[in-house]
Design a protein around this nucleic acid. Structure first.
Length: 315
RNA sequence: CGCGGGGUGGAGCAGCUUGGUUAGCUCGUCGGGCUCAUAACCCGGAGGUCAGGAGGUUCAAAUCCCCUCCCCGCAA
């Protein structure tokens, strides 16, 4: 199989790595342009680019996929299949139709649910108990292609974006390998998505990061887990951002007479804060300008005490 | 030179604006006590010279000025 791989972030890199380690090393990789990022705005290479360079795989970083020079170059590789994982841009039909087997995409959700930019985060945020990856043959729509393979994984109360992301990136790698085999044997089956069940996972915005203590403890917990370790859910304490990175739900806690956001108790177990329904036991935080730390350390340093209020940020 | 926060005993912080007795707090740790017992409580101890610069100012600097190194947030 002559494979061209398209992808950009860490999730994609894991899939690329799996391919390489299984004897399916792509002949070329297409990834996003280097962008200024980090402190000092230094130019940063994508995770996929770094790995591809290490593996001595040719890297392309076209500004536009519609660029005829790029297309010519891509055509010259005469790919049998193009594997696309979180590349970040819409592929033009010319590219979709180029490879013999078409473009194969791994999407981190159980399609047709959670099409779009942030499927993992949205699934966790919505409190889903299950998610997965879908390998599909791409068409011109956004994550609307016919499905070839679906791999599921459960979401537990302990899971957060990081753990789900890691698991799904590995599953995606496995899924893609399997689909390649199916394609080669001509045994791949293509199932159309049920449009009626389609949902869209909008990308995470600033407002998604703000913790609203009037919501239920369960909902807030899901929000925190969906946004850890990036970009984090936060509230305000003493005029500063306080990201909450871990918290347990105390669903049977009777918060009557307490205002949402009010701190009910502070002890070695953590900080208990009232919510719209039930309470939240905060066990790990990430204060502004500080490091992510165990809640005990935070309690020792900040003089937080019972009766203090955590405010839902609004700026 | 994108903007901002910070480097103080093992951890998290205060002190620095208005320089000057033994550098303070919470936790951990070590020893002792209380207790059937304890992560609970009580008593006592060890441990820092304040990122680095045989730098500047000063009678005197963790506290003011200068330089270097490092960490973090924003932004992406």
């Amino acid at each position: 199989m002559r494979i061209v791989f398209m992808g950009t972030p860490d999730f994609s890199k894991t899939v690329l790595k799996t391919l390489c380690e299984n004897g399916n090393t792509p002949i070329a990789v297409v990834t996003g342009a280097d962008k200024p990022a980090g402190r000092g705005y230094n130019l940063m290479q994508s995770a996929v680019k770094k790995y591809a360079l290490e593996q001595k795989i040719e890297v392309m970083q076209p500004e536009k996929l519609s660029d005829p020079i790029f297309f010519e170059k891509l055509s010259s590789f005469d790919p049998d299949v193009i594997i696309v994982v979180a590349y970040g841009k819409i592929l033009p039909e010319s590219v979709l139709n180029l490879p013999k087997y078409g473009c194969i995409n791994a999407h981190a959700s159980l399609l047709p649910m959670y099409r779009g930019a942030a499927p993992m985060q949205r699934a966790i945020m919505d409190g889903k108990s299950e998610t997965g990856v879908t390998i599909m043959k791409m068409d011109k729509g956004l994550d609307t292609g016919d499905m070839i393979l679906t791999l599921k994984t459960a979401i537990s109360d302990e899971d957060n974006f990081e753990t789900v992301h890691d698991r799904l990136s590995k599953l995606s790698g496995e899924g893609v390998i399997n689909v390649l085999k199916l394609l080669e044997k001509g045994e791949a089956t293509f199932t159309a998505q049920d449009e009626k069940k389609a949902t869209y996972a909008e990308k995470i915005s600033k407002s998604d990061e703000i913790i609203n203590f009037y919501r239920t403890a369960k909902e807030i917990s899901c929000q925190i887990r969906a946004l850890t370790p990036f970009p984090f859910a936060y509230c305000m304490f003493n005029g500063k951002k306080l990201k909450i990175t871990k918290a347990d739900v105390l669903s049977d806690f009777d918060a009557k007479g307490k205002n949402p956001g009010e701190i009910i108790s502070v002890n070695k177990n953590g900080i208990t804060v009232a919510t719209g329904k039930g309470a939240l036991l905060i066990t790990e935080v990430f204060p502004e300008s500080k490091r992510r730390m165990n809640v005990c350390d935070f309690i020792n340093g900040a003089k937080i005490r019972q009766g203090d209020i955590l405010i839902s940020a609004n700026y």
